[in-house]
Write a protein that binds this DNA or RNA. Structure first.
Lengths: 422, 422
DNA sequence: ACAGTTTCCCGTAAATGC
DNA sequence: TGCATTTACGGGAAACTG
């Protein structure tokens, strides 16, 4: 009879951060004649949650609303609550929420709606409640909260099983891979293809990757760390989603980021290609990083692969990724710097692919020379020893010796008079 | 008899932001025998401020404290209030604080302390209050608040003249310049020298600059915009202070930033120096920017000056300033890029001056090639027309034409099958 | 000591008020 | 409408708390 709408966290419904406003809406689906009636609705958080096992929250702000006839429009009666805000209940007795079994992002909460409907002296009480909600206190918990919502929706149709994560079911790889791809299509505009999912499957399942019926546990997805890494599979994948959303959207949507490729596959793909052929993939060793790998031929004809140190959000916010690809240069001393990136795999000339994604440098009319940052890799030339540049004493000195030298030089400077001295 | 200490905003006492915790302390200076007594202190904000003219605030949190004998230590009796928080009083009647005459950062407020001292049935009441305080609601108002505190302290000894900015007195340039220099020595570690102050004086006073008795008005310092600029003198100067604090501290403290030089002076200083001699100065056209100007000799022997587009906090947080100086390159097509910066004015070889301020690039052991950003200025070579690089069609095309071309190329790409298509 | 969690608060963006 | 001021809240870091 009533259909509760969900509170909305920007892009991530069902996750509420304490102290941050959210909105919710209830719709009365019954069709009514426009006579004399009144509807009063009250929202309560964690209404009949058994205390002790998990944290409990309440709505700080006003949570009751009376609806008049004016609110009746476009065929259905609805009440919207705005500016709601959650705060944790503090326990008088020593009992503490969150008894250690579940992490906070596995705790499920709910929002209840109690309505009191009055028509001509007759009163009808109605009650309903929301799907399970996750409550967090910092955005850093958002990925953990979101994967909980994902797992819940994937594996149960129950509208309100708050104990779900007490013993969470497993998912088949075919179920999981679909929902992972859906994450990318929803948040980044373009889902994952078969090759990308197969690499992810291999990473998560090891040798069982090919078997789409293989069961993945909740723990494997989001709680255990990837062997040798300090983060879980989901944390890693979500960091990539965030990177795409903030810094790589156009490049991702043009399908120019292969992204998920194993290193073996990468070499297989590149080894027979033109020198200067490159592909883009995400870092497996660090959260939220993207790198490019290109192939070149050594002096004696052997195939060489190079990958640049991954770019993370800090770097990318100083310089957009397409511009990095355009401007990337390898510098060896005394040689004209060269951009080794020529063809996006398999054989698309770089500027054809990225041309329209480049930022046109706004050339100002100012008395200033414009300046950009460009990404370079400096190679210590392993050709013949070129005489070192006169500008700076390139250390064959140790850093220690260098510091001492600098100190002495500075002493001399300080004893000079200059327009800088006070 | 009592000495109130000030609430502490980090680095900027006397300025309190609403909703942000502050601390205050009162000391009872009288020496007492350790007998049976009790001291109760209450703090009140805006205690007897006449309502209507300015905003009024109150202390949200608990504001009373009882002191026991234990608190008596190191010879004086003191009460410290922590976690105090301010909120604006909302007026029941239509009267609104801040009636337009003063800006919020010119409104002065105060914190009152009422103490009730009980010894053996005898009660003594005491009262005192703080120096004037400025209340802000956003850190963006901090510079405005701080210059008010500065002006107040500079020009009056009255402990509590809340109407000070109703008709603020003028300061002589000699008074003002001293306090400006003091700002730099306090917040950036090194004050301003005569030459720097003289440029500032010229900027603020025009032709009266040489006269240290010349009077500067409050408005001229912090309310009127600099002619042709959308910011006041103080806003400009404070943006530079912030830039130094966050990004230029070591360079500033080595006295390597001349900073405040007029363009005429800059040319006079550089024109007879070795080519490649450069100096560092702050941008006058934009808030919080630093640039370098270097001198070089043209083909036919004439002296040329170049200044790079100023670096602002965004750029500097991607790349420290010393590294910018080390790595800066001017690139002309097909030519080995060169760093035009050779000698810090007057004649200090660049690496002698900045050597120990460079960030040592941590060369990782990874399978990755390390990569940095380097600042470059690309010169459209005005020598003979070199054949354009094969990599990208350097526009003699208009951007419009270029976009169209790119679009067509992309259409072709999309109709290909590639490992990127889903 | 430590990890999971919350609080704090700057700084940007958006909303609000006049 | 534009400007001054406040509110909102993401994100990094510090503080808390078993």
């Amino acid at each position: 009879e009533k259909q509760p709408c969900m509170p909305t966290h920007p892009q991530k419904p069902l996750i509420i951060k304490t102290g941050v406003q959210f909105t919710t809406k209830v719709r009365l689906l019954v069709k009514l004649p426009e006579v004399d009636y009144q509807l009063k609705v009250k929202t309560t958080f964690d209404k009949d949650l058994p205390p002790g096992r998990v944290r409990q929250f309440f709505i700080l702000t006003n949570n009751t609303k009376v609806m008049d006839i004016e609110d009746y429009s476009n065929g259905c009666l609805s009440v919207e609550f705005r500016h709601l805000q959650l705060k944790e209940k503090k326990y008088i007795n020593g009992t503490k929420g969150n008894e250690g079994l579940l992490s906070v992002t596995e705790e499920l909460h709910s929002l209840s709606f109690e309505a009191c409907f009055t028509v001509q002296g007759l009163t009808i009480d109605l009650e309903t409640c929301s799907l399970p909600l996750v409550v967090i206190s910092n955005v850093s918990q958002l990925p953990g909260g979101w994967v909980s919502v994902m797992w819940y929706n994937l594996l149960t149709d129950e509208p309100r099983n708050l104990a779900f994560f007490g013993n969470p079911p497993r998912a088949t790889w075919s179920q999981l891979s679909e929902v992972l791809s859906w994450q990318f299509s929803t948040f980044a505009g373009k889902g994952l293809n078969k090759e990308q999912l197969s690499m992810l499957g291999g990473k998560l399942l090891g040798q069982h990757a090919s078997c789409s019926d293989y069961q993945v546990s909740w723990s494997k997805l989001s709680k255990e760390n990837i062997p040798g890494k300090p983060f879980s599979f989901w944390m890693w994948l979500d960091s990539i989603l965030e990177l795409i959303k903030k810094h790589l959207l156009p490049v991702w949507n043009e399908n120019y980021i292969m992204g998920f490729v194993s290193k073996e596959m990468e070499r297989t793909l590149l080894k027979d290609k033109e020198p200067g052929t490159f592909l883009l993939r995400f870092s497996e060793s660090h959260l939220g990083g993207i790198t490019f790998t290109w192939v070149e031929h050594g002096d004696n004809g052997e195939v060489k692969f190079n990958s640049v140190e991954p770019y993370t959000k800090n770097r990318l916010s100083a310089l957009p990724f397409a511009d990095i690809i355009r401007d990337y240069k390898v510098i060896s001393e005394g040689v004209v710097p060269e951009n080794p990136l020529k063809f996006l795999y398999p054989d698309i000339p770089k500027d054809e692919a990225f041309g329209r994604l480049y930022n046109i440098q706004p050339s100002k009319v100012h008395p200033y020379i414009t300046s950009t940052l460009i990404p370079i890799s400096q190679l210590r030339s392993n050709t013949t020893t070129t005489p070192s540049s006169c500008q700076s004493p390139e250390p064959p000195m140790t850093p220690r010796e260098f510091d001492m030298l600098s100190e002495h030089l500075c002493f001399d400077i300080n004893s000079m008079s200059s327009p800088y001295s006070e």
